[in-house]
Design a protein around this nucleic acid. Structure first.
Lengths: 325, 325
DNA sequence: ACAAGAAATGAATGCGCATTCATGTTCGTG
DNA sequence: CACGAACATGAATGCGCATTCATTTCTTGT
């Protein structure tokens, strides 16, 4: 930067200004500086800038998994908005593991991000302490909480599970089963569904659980297991994701079970493909685009001098009835 | 850090050493320092560290899209290895747009990453220049090139397209069509497929192209379009992704076309679900896990004092024959 | 034509750490 | 017992920039 200044016949300060506040530099000087930058191929050192100004323009984003489309698409929407506002993303995957999350938080905080995005509202005590001490904006997504660390954007998994149970009971299904992956939030949906459905119908809800993440193949296996256990006719299966639901759908079709008469299927997430399966999947829509964008705007608002946004933003959900239930 | 030193009765230097080279500090001093760190809740400032040591432990990763599973899973494998080696990931999405990539490269370089991961081998001249001037390790993935910027890990899309054409011709298919998304690499596969298949069979290959990224729904539309155009019987459809192929599969089933007799389908990518569709999808396997890991190891090797790895690493591909072709 | 404010620029300083280099201490060996 | 070697520690310095604060030059109104 000093080198550029020499070439342009000005001081380092003026070059700095030319880059960060060009309106404070006279037009001729600005031109000379820009010329000098072009000639030297100068690339600003944002590390030094961050140290001097105590502002990194970096956002730490911790998601369970980028290979899971629901988190990936939320992240996409989030990073798009942050990028537009001049921020960049440091990414880590936590794999649903609070220990990993804690380590990742510690590492990321040492880089002095301007804010941090976390998935879910359950964090280790040490993690909460670190975040508190860091004193930076924090946004938790994919869930709501009465006691957010800072900001929170999501929906209630308990309400979602209950709503699906009501939907199923209202539709006249007397029996139900669940297929659930190893995601803490999915487990809460499952339990809320089960509690509400059993209360409404008086029949026990069968469960198939998997520790891993969801996939089409496992969804097929799960439905096969349920059928072999002797699922009663006209039962509804609530899956923790559309992947599972699609797998269950395929397995049911292969077994010649008519959908939704002999077996009904409800997915979760309303992914893009849900409308295009045959028959089209009934699912619960979570607008992941809005989720990511709202999280981003919550941070941008928080960066401002007088934040006006709410602490907790509930984006809700919507049961999308198609053909499988 | 000076504060921690005061508490432990040592200088800032010793604290620095205690953190970066604990074996160079006497055990008792180390204990006192660790105690002081715990009491103060000190969090190292990696920004200052990076400025002083000219080493950021950050890797810039530029991928077209994180919502596309093939890039997401490669990124996952890559970041996993880099994380184990003490590096963190700065992520940007380029959306298949060289202009966006160029801007993202400039922004990322200002953060002085220790290396950069790029997707594909086609970059704007300005981008190449910047990368060259930066003088940091660069790894290009998902493609191979005779003139890599630095390191390159991928496979030949031309070979892949040609191999699928040979496979189809060998299997006796006399007619073919392609369904392709707006990915430059997919276009090269399509063109190689078309050229080889037309040469082998003498029949013209039909095309359906979409500018957007692949989805199940669009795959269905595409197959519908092909059928309505009057696709000859016993034709094979080469899709640029398994999403498209699965959509085509569903549409074919809905239309009562028998697979693979009336219509054969070949996907690309061999995603997890490909083996679980009904009928199971024939596809081209790219080991994205290996791709990401190899890219990571290429960088780690490159960071060493005497790198031994090859400039270009071809991970190859494999046609996985299942039931749809 | 002159005071007073605005605009344009530069000198000095420090952000928090890593990296020399110098100094003091302990140990093994002949 | 003395001497060099390994070890443990600290003082000083600078990484490249942003941020005061001071200085100079240019406007403007009367």
């Amino acid at each position: 930067m000093a080198e550029v200044g020499r070439l342009a016949g000005v001081s380092q300060v003026t070059v700095s200004r030319a880059l960060s506040a060009p309106e404070k530099v006279s037009p001729e000087t600005l031109t000379r500086i820009q010329d000098a930058i072009a000639r030297t191929g100068y690339v600003p050192n944002a590390v030094a800038g961050a140290l001097a100004s105590n502002k990194s323009n970096l956002i730490a984003a911790l998601v369970p998994s980028v290979t899971n489309i629901v988190y990936a698409s939320m992240l996409h929407a989030f990073s798009e908005i942050m990028w537009q506002h001049g921020y960049q993303i440091m990414l880590s995957e936590t794999g649903f593991d609070p220990q990993r999350e804690e380590k990742a938080i510690a590492t990321h905080l040492s880089r002095r991000p301007d804010a941090i995005l976390l998935t879910g509202v359950h964090h280790s005590p040490a993690a909460r302490r670190m975040l508190h001490n860091a004193g930076i904006p924090v946004v938790e997504v994919w869930d709501v909480s009465d006691t957010p660390i800072d900001r929170c954007v999501g929906f209630s998994h308990i309400e979602a599970g209950s709503a699906v149970a009501d939907f199923a009971a209202d539709a006249g299904y007397a029996h139900a089963a669940t297929i659930t992956a190893g995601d803490e939030r999915a487990l809460r949906r499952r339990d809320a569904f089960t509690a509400r459905f059993e209360r409404r119908t008086g029949t026990k809800v069968e469960q198939v659980n998997y520790a891993d993440s969801a996939s089409l193949g496992v969804g097929r296996q799960a439905l096969a297991a349920l059928v072999e256990r002797g699922l009663p006719p006209h039962a509804v299966v609530f899956c923790s994701s559309d992947q599972f639901a699609h797998g269950a759908l395929i397995e049911a079709a292969v077994r010649g079970l008519s959908i939704p008469d002999e077996i009904a299927i409800i997915g979760f997430g309303d992914q893009e493909f849900a409308a295009s399966t045959a028959p089209a999947l009934t699912s619960v829509r979570i607008d992941r685009q809005v989720l990511g964008q709202t999280a981003a705007y919550a941070l941008v608002d928080r960066f401002g001098t007088n934040p006006t946004g709410p602490k907790v933003y509930n984006v809700g959900f919507e049961i999308v009835r198609r053909q499988t239930a």
